[in-house]
Design a binder for these strands. Structure first.
Length: 292
DNA sequence: CTAACTCCCTGATAGC
DNA sequence: TGCTATCAGGGAGTTA
């Protein structure tokens, strides 16, 4: 029993912060709260340029003296819209932004720092694994043509996200439905954790081929995608409000996991043992009794 | 065209 | 105590 508890704590402590749609949404919400629109960018400092891609430093420096208009999310991307020019941020696996009201104490893996005028507000990008990246574009029109955005799929919290459309999109796909869900060309923002959780609630086995799901099963996938993502946004929103003091690692959503990271534990619905398997190179968890 | 595989990177962990 | 090997994961790039 005690060994079981120890095991759970070990897994929780080890679990990294994985920015999927709800986490990125919360980052955007807290950034918007802390950085009032209209602030003018005073300075950008680059401590290193080699993230996932080389940061276009010259172009980003062009944002100096521009005012921040707003911050938006597209899938897992954060879009900082300035009066002239846009900064795109992807957090990869371990990226996070922190806001401080005073000169920030430098931390290991800080890569970029923005300073705003007349408020001594600082925005620092930290990313240990450097899977994240920053880019620059001139306007929102260019966003649609951006090579990283041109193939992006459905926003799951939009009206386009319907079972009928998913069924149509998956008609020819022989891939496992979990891989289909995680493919950003199909749906935005669903990562490894939420894919397992959504399929558990929808009672669909992750290995089932995407083109073999019935309309009813797609309806369940859509319903629980929206429900779980919204729920996770709410929980993250409540736990991340002291965002500037944290590095984003403290969300409450992980306490809601039914299957992810629970290999060998009992299913909360039927008490069967949760199974685990690597699918498409990613750890996958499911209940073979509940999910067909 | 689709799908599968490889690789990038660091910190946590296991094994010795 | 410290060393080395292994692994996780988003997703672009490469190969089949």
């Amino acid at each position: 029993m005690i060994e079981g508890i120890r095991k759970i704590y070990r897994i929780r402590a080890r679990r990294p912060f994985l920015p999927e749609l709800p986490e990125v949404e919360n980052v955007c919400i807290s950034l918007k709260k802390q950085i009032p629109s209209g602030l003018e960018l005073k300075q950008i400092e680059f401590f290193r340029m080699d993230l996932r891609f080389i940061i276009p430093t010259k172009q980003l420096l062009g944002l100096i003296n521009e005012r921040l208009v707003t911050i938006e999310r597209r899938g897992k991307y954060i879009i900082f819209i300035f009066t002239r020019g846009i900064m795109i941020s992807h957090l990869g696996m371990t990226g996070h932004w922190r806001v401080s009201q005073t000169i920030p104490k430098s931390e290991k893996h800080d890569h970029v720092q923005l300073q705003f005028r007349n408020s001594s507000l600082y925005l620092t990008y930290n990313d240990p694994r450097r899977f994240g990246y920053l880019d620059f574009i001139n306007s929102l029109d260019q966003l649609k043509k951006h090579k990283l955005f041109i193939h992006l799929g459905l926003e799951p919290l939009s009206e386009d996200f319907t079972a009928e459309l998913l069924k149509k999109m998956s008609q020819k796909s022989e891939r496992a439905v979990k891989i289909f869900l995680m493919d950003q060309k199909n749906i935005l923002g669903i990562g490894n954790i939420y894919a397992s959780e959504i399929l558990f609630q929808a009672k669909v086995k992750p290995q089932k081929k995407a083109n073999q799901l019935t309309l009813l099963q797609w309806q369940k996938v859509v319903f629980y995608s929206i429900k779980i993502l919204k729920h996770a946004i709410q929980l993250g929103g409540s736990s991340i409000k002291d965002y500037r003091n944290t590095n984003g690692q403290s969300g409450k959503f992980q306490n809601q996991h039914q299957v992810y990271g629970k290999k060998g534990e009992s299913c909360r619905t039927c008490s069967s043992i949760i199974k685990s398997e690597v699918l498409g190179g990613r750890a996958t968890f499911w209940c073979s009794h509940c999910q067909k």
